[in-house]
Simulated assay, not measured.
Amino acid sequence: MLLVPGWMWQRGPATRAVGAGLAAGAFLAAFVLIEAQSWPGAAVVFVVLSLFYGTRVARRMHRLWPAAKDMNRADRAAVVRATRRGEAVDDPRLAPAVVEYADALHRAADEDRLRRWAVLLVTVLAVALAVYDTVTGSTGETVASWLLVVLLLADLMWWPLRRDRLLARADQAAEAAGRDI
């Protein structure tokens, strides 16, 4: 939910699921294609991950911010945009939704913080695999392995700072909205 861009909230739940699923499926299918040079394998990864990840994202978004389903697309997008920017929402009737969305972002961040140890473990394993692939693997395996290490390290170092800035802006928006309620 933290990574879902504001423009995706303008869409309905099915379109949000498809958008998130296709992005993840294409990204990870590209890894399969680079490493294994297998079009059928990449196609399977694309289809399976697109379906499962898209469904998971849509369900999580609904669970964390159920009030979004009762809002029209323009209002939902306005709330998300204002909250992510840390601004007051233009329409005072949307102020409670800003507070709800900010709370949903905090709940999502809290859930994700519980999983950070898994990212650290996967990073350590990915470094070991990248070293092994560098010594014994093909060029495609080596490139894919080190690319994965770079992405995981970025996730460990860059994402917490970005997440904290997003949550600080959400708090600013919620505080501004609280004055309008």
Results as ranks from 00 to 15, higher is better:
41 G>R: 00
158 W>T: 09
155 D>N: 12
85 R>T: 03
126 A>T: 05
15 T>C: 11
43 A>Y: 02
103 D>T: 09
109 A>P: 03
118 A>Y: 09
43 A>S: 06
61 M>G: 11
65 W>E: 04
108 A>D: 09
161 L>W: 10
77 A>D: 05
82 A>V: 05
10 Q>N: 14
16 R>G: 03
70 D>S: 13
76 R>T: 01
178 G>E: 10
6 G>T: 13
100 E>N: 07
47 V>I: 12
7 W>H: 14
166 L>N: 01
84 R>E: 11
56 R>G: 11
22 L>D: 01
11 R>Y: 14
176 A>K: 15
162 R>C: 07
132 Y>V: 05
56 R>C: 02
144 A>S: 14
165 R>M: 11
175 E>I: 00
145 S>N: 09
108 A>R: 01
125 L>V: 12
17 A>V: 08
158 W>R: 15
150 V>R: 04
118 A>G: 05
42 A>S: 08
29 A>S: 08
90 D>V: 11
132 Y>N: 06
144 A>I: 06
144 A>C: 07
128 A>T: 07
42 A>M: 03
74 A>W: 09
131 V>W: 07
86 G>R: 10
170 A>K: 10
54 G>D: 01
105 L>Y: 05
168 A>R: 15
88 A>Q: 12
92 P>N: 08
149 V>K: 04
25 G>T: 01
13 P>M: 06
64 L>Y: 11
1 M>K: 05
157 M>K: 04
108 A>Q: 04
21 G>L: 00
162 R>H: 09
57 V>H: 06
3 L>R: 15
18 V>E: 00
15 T>W: 14
74 A>R: 12
123 T>G: 02
53 Y>D: 05
136 T>G: 03
83 T>V: 12
18 V>L: 15
81 R>K: 14
165 R>I: 01
149 V>A: 08
29 A>R: 02
4 V>T: 15
62 H>R: 12
53 Y>I: 06
88 A>E: 09
11 R>F: 15
128 A>F: 04
51 L>H: 02
88 A>T: 06
106 H>Q: 13
63 R>M: 05
99 V>F: 07
